[in-house]
């Protein structure tokens, strides 16, 4: 039974449709979605309606959270004043555009999903805003997977898909306690774990405009990183027509890798 995992649709209805067609071609039994249905893109209501009508189990992304709770991310979530100002413009536009039922749907989304030995989150199990980049320290990555209790952690948020296997983890510890003269030695062995980043359907940042998502076979543990062409000029035109910043259209057409992320990807805002 294969599953498809999609993430970061960002109001891009054209991309979502193309990805759903591609999923249809792959005999997938279940689709999961890792959030960020809205933000940046021109069709937030249509995207939410599609995900809802297909009963796709979905976790809440950082954009979904901000839309329902008010923009609460601090400036530390943005790498620059310029990125922050654009993020706020997109937030304001989306906030005015979405229908009450869209907001209600986003509000009831869970932060995490667990199915058998699989966990699904938007950013990381700690926080929707945390970026689990492929180069993040292996021990940090292992901690995030162990925190879910699952063997495979699906995440999004970075907009660049990847698969990361963590194996043969071993840590040796010596502990000396007050009142105990001898030093205790512990050997901790970490089990095989895997992080699968689903990329982004609606705002890819891998260097091409194509939508990305993943197909996973829990029985064989095979992962396919899928890249799907779609009519991105149509989405770009809609971005400009709807009055969203034109730079979003330019970025979308390039699939730019210049990710808008804070300098410290594991930084978690206290707000």
């Amino acid at each position: 039974m294969k599953i498809a995992v999609i993430s970061c649709i960002h109001g891009n209805y054209e991309a979502l449709n193309a990805v759903l067609s591609d999923i249809d071609d792959h005999k997938v039994e279940q689709i999961y979605c890792l959030g960020d249905l809205v933000g940046y893109g021109p069709h937030p209501n249509a995207v939410v309606e599609m995900v809802r009508s297909l009963n796709i189990p979905t976790v809440q992304g950082c954009w979904d959270e901000d839309i329902i709770e008010g923009l609460n991310a601090c400036e530390c979530s943005y790498p620059s004043i310029l990125a922050e100002q654009r993020g706020k413009l997109a937030h304001t536009w989306t906030d005015q555009e979405i229908h009450p039922e869209t907001r209600e749907f986003l509000a009831q989304l869970p932060m995490t999903l667990r199915v058998d030995n699989l966990a699904f989150v938007h950013g990381s199990p700690n926080n929707q805003h945390e970026y689990l980049l492929p180069e993040i320290d292996a021990f940090t990555a292992m901690e995030r997977v162990l925190g879910t209790g699952a063997d495979v952690l699906f995440c999004g948020h970075t907009h660049v898909p990847y698969v990361r296997d963590l194996s043969d983890g071993l840590v040796k510890v010596q502990v000396k306690r007050s009142g105990v003269s001898e030093t205790a030695t512990q050997i901790h062995v970490a089990p095989l774990k895997r992080i699968i980043n689903a990329g982004s359907v609606g705002e890819p940042r891998h260097g091409r405009p194509n939508a990305t998502y993943v197909i996973y076979d829990p029985e064989s543990a095979e992962v396919k990183l899928r890249e799907v062409e779609y009519d991105y000029p149509k989405t770009c035109a809609a971005i400009i027509d709807k009055g969203l910043p034109a730079i979003f259209a330019w970025r979308l057409a390039r699939g730019l890798e210049y990710a808008e992320r804070a300098e410290d990807p594991t930084h978690i805002c206290e707000r």
């Binding site: 790498p79 620059s80 004043i81 310029l82 990125a83 730079i247 330019w250 970025r251 390039r254 210049y258 300098e263």
Partner: peptide
């Protein structure tokens, strides 16, 4: 200018945004 914003702007400008 904020250096991070300048970096982003300079990248966009020279890349044709």
């Amino acid at each position: 200018l904020d250096p991070a914003s300048l970096n982003l702007f300079w990248f966009e400008l020279t890349e044709g945004a």
